[in-house]
Design a protein around this nucleic acid. Sequence first.
DNA 1: GTTGAGCGTT
Length: 220
Amino acid sequence: MRGRSYTPSPPRGGYGRRRRSPSPRRKYAARDDRDYPTSLLVRNLRHDCRPEDLRRPFGQFGPLKDIYLPRDYYTGQPRGFGFIQYVDPADAAEAKYQMDGQILLGRELTVVFAEENRKKPADMRARDRVRGHSYDRRRSPRSPRYSRSSPRLHARDRSRSRGYSPSPRRREYSRRASRERSYSRSPAHNGSRSRSRSPIRGRARSPNATYSREPSRDSR
DNA sequence: GTTGAGCGTT
């Protein structure tokens, strides 16, 4: 009997049973009424805040599925907000209600439901262009040289905390693996020729002994 | 089957 009495505490006037009102936009699009959002957007996070810091306070309400703190792609600096996904939407609702306005590390958190739509790299790229100020892709007035910090460098840091919940056990595993290669998840694929998308110059990766099967040697 | 450049950063 786990009669855990959830107190979803619906936001102002409840979630609304799909009102016929001409809402300009459904708050939680792509979700049915019975399917409440499980992701929360936590705002006003301290820049020092790490996923682990959030896990404890937010984990009180239920199992967390994921925690992710977006960072600036170029600078790698935390953006001050994060996403917390719950397994159970009821927990998410509860957490939102309880944590909204709470103080974490001296900052008052703002917790709201997150949209389900994740942003893709392609979107960010487009956005960057728009934000960049009439970006003339031909040649920008200012060379966006962000040679200072590269996401890749942060990738190293990411190896430790990874940003999202790593299984403790897995970490052990990863620790060993992170010795040599395994750096394949950087924005810069540095494939061989396309090095345009990434702000940083991907270091020329060794060909890594491609398994080029000799065309004429495989006889059977 | 997933996504880690996630919307809301001062």
